[in-house]
Nucleic acid binder design. Structure first.
Length: 507
RNA sequence: UCCUUCUUAGCUCAGCUGGUUAGAGCACAUGACUGUUAAUCAUGGGGUCCCUGGUUCGAGCCCAGGAGAGGGAGCCA
């Protein structure tokens, strides 16, 4: 077992202790080696000075390469310059497992390579920070619901019926019968709420969507609370309190991790402000640019963005050119060439992202301008809308045709269903979908027929209305999308330890 | 399913109008340097230019087909 951990070094200043872990980096000088040790709880520089250790020990230190596992004994010294604020002056060192040609270098890598090496990528600092934030989010979710009187219950993963239609389901063999991997625990959640009042499920969800976008996974974790005697407005109140609690927990406890992922926390701190609530009608007007919000016009701001993107493309191209010229000047130091080369690589990465945006934004503009009233929002519409806000927004009262069969019709206007989507700001889009459920058995039967779903598979669900129906509501939160927004990640793939995506099953 | 971008060393990328022996940085190996922060400096090894076919005196570069990856639309949390 490990007696001492890097995170606890503060209490050990002046003491000689033994740490166990991996070498995440090493720098060498004459008679001196600096090993950055990581043990899962943090990073710490260990200094091996030839004069302080035996010759065999120093030879051993020289053999340490990236990700070699080792045991290090030495004195803990305070040193503000270092990552964790402490340093080990090594007196003894012992290699546990060698590591040669570790594939992930101390440099930028492409996504394909990193995803192929996810099992090793997880060891890097940024991924470590994301996983810790993910963990804090999960814990905060449980804390919030448990304190609020919810009971955690589990929906089955094998299901015989499709919740919202048969497409996008992974089919498996269940003793000779077709079974589907759950794409939502929602219907089961309703049954469980009718027993325990307020429940939430927390489990994996599977969608066979052939989507290759920055916000889709084939396997993701969903949190689905369901509450009796809640209407859509109670539901929105809960969503708001819930998200506020989770984000606040991360802000309070993950300062270091947020810094490591480079998250500007100013926008997260806005979470204390009330979430704007828009009806579908209001949101459509904003998307189409007919109504301004916060002094900003959706179409205009997107057009401005396009201009900025183009300007930035020019600047970046110029800078690449300048640096390429600079490299060619004779007599330049090798180190300076390397530095410029690295800058050029970074700029090229930015350039290809910008060019991507340059291709996408005109499409989004087109789709926003021509948005047809009555349609569901597409990914780009959500982006266009949420770019204008600095807090999550809630859009409710959707045209009933575009939403799931189990949503309640608005009693004041039957064209609308009482669904609510919560969209994360900064262009991130939908993180929560939910609503008030239909309570009338006959309206439900009509809807099931309209959607051409197999009635026999839903008989048990209809029983919930036959035996003491009550008003109830709930929602589903996509954990990875929340992690992605809170960390401001460029892609969901970094928000889960081993992402399962269209075309990705390994590692 | 459709649109779009890409594929050159282990990794990240150059490679001009089609021209002779394909380059750089990182990583790796050896050596130098007592305090480095992606350390630095010197030397060295390392290539099926994604695959198949075509055009050409000549293809990493042009054409056709295929494979793989990125992003987007649809669909969705």
């Amino acid at each position: 077992m490990q007696k001492f951990l890097i995170k606890d070094l503060a209490a050990q200043v002046g003491n000689e202790i033994t740490l166990k872990g991996w070498a995440s980096n090493k720098r060498e000088g004459k008679g001196l080696a600096f090993i950055i040790l990581r043990d899962g709880t943090g990073w710490c520089q260990c200094v091996v000075a030839q004069e302080n250790v035996s010759d065999t020990c120093f030879e051993e230190a020289k053999k340490v390469s990236l990700e070699t596992s080792l045991e290090i004994t030495g004195k803990v010294v305070k040193d503000e310059k270092q990552i964790g604020g402490y340093e080990i002056q090594v007196s003894n060192l012992h290699i546990i497992g060698h590591s040669s040609d570790y594939p992930i270098a101390k440099k930028e890598h492409g996504v394909d390579f990193l995803t192929d090496n996810r099992h090793l990528w997880l060891r890097s600092q940024r991924q470590w920070a994301i996983m810790r934030i993910r963990n804090r989010i999960i814990f905060a979710i449980h804390e919030f619901f448990q304190k609020d009187g919810f009971v955690q219950m589990d929906a089955p993963i094998f299901t015989g019926n499709a919740c919202e239609g048969t497409s996008n389901l992974f089919e498996t063999d269940f003793y000779g019968d077709p079974a589907y991997l759950s794409q939502s625990g929602q219907l089961y959640g309703e049954a469980m709420a009718f027993s325990l009042g307020k429940i939430y499920t927390f489990g994996p969800t599977f969608r066979a969507e052939k989507s290759k976008t920055r916000r889709h996974l084939s396997e993701f974790w969903m949190i689905e609370p369901e509450m009796i005697f809640h209407d859509i407005f109670d539901n929105m109140d809960l969503i708001e309190r819930f998200l506020r609690a989770v984000v606040t927990a991360v802000l309070n406890d993950c300062e270091k991790e947020l810094e490591l992922v480079g998250r500007d926390t100013a926008i997260l701190k806005n979470i204390i402000k009330p979430f704007p609530r828009l009806t579908y009608d209001e949101a459509v007007k904003i998307i189409k640019g007919e109504v301004d919000v916060n002094g900003k016009n959706a179409i205009q701001s997107l057009e401005d963005e396009l201009v900025l993107v183009n300007k930035r493309i020019n600047t970046v191209e110029e800078e690449i050119k300048t640096r390429e010229e600079k490299i060619k000047t004779p007599g330049m130091k090798k180190g300076e060439i390397g530095f410029n080369q690295a800058q050029i690589d970074k700029l090229k990465q930015e350039l290809s992202d910008l060019e991507e945006q340059n291709r996408n934004i005109p499409q989004w503009l087109n789709s926003a301008r021509n948005f047809e009233y009555g349609n569901d929002f597409g990914g780009s519409d959500e982006t266009v809308l949420t770019r204008l806000f600095d807090v999550p927004i809630m859009v409710y009262n959707w045209p009933h045709e575009v939403k799931a069969f189990y949503l309640k019709r608005d009693p004041n206007d039957s064209r609308f269903a009482r669904g609510v989507d919560t969209l994360a700001p900064e262009g991130y889009g939908e993180i929560v979908g939910g609503g008030e459920r239909e309570t009338d058995v006959n309206l439900l039967i009509n809807k099931i027929n309209e959607h051409q779903l197999p009635m026999e598979a839903f008989e048990w669900y209809l029983d919930l209305r036959r035996y003491g129906t009550v008003p109830h509501a709930g929602f589903g939160l996509g954990l990875e999308r929340l992690v992605t927004w809170i960390c401001k990640l460029p892609h969901v793939r970094e928000s889960i330890p081993f992402p399962r995506m269209y075309g990705r099953l390994l590692p």
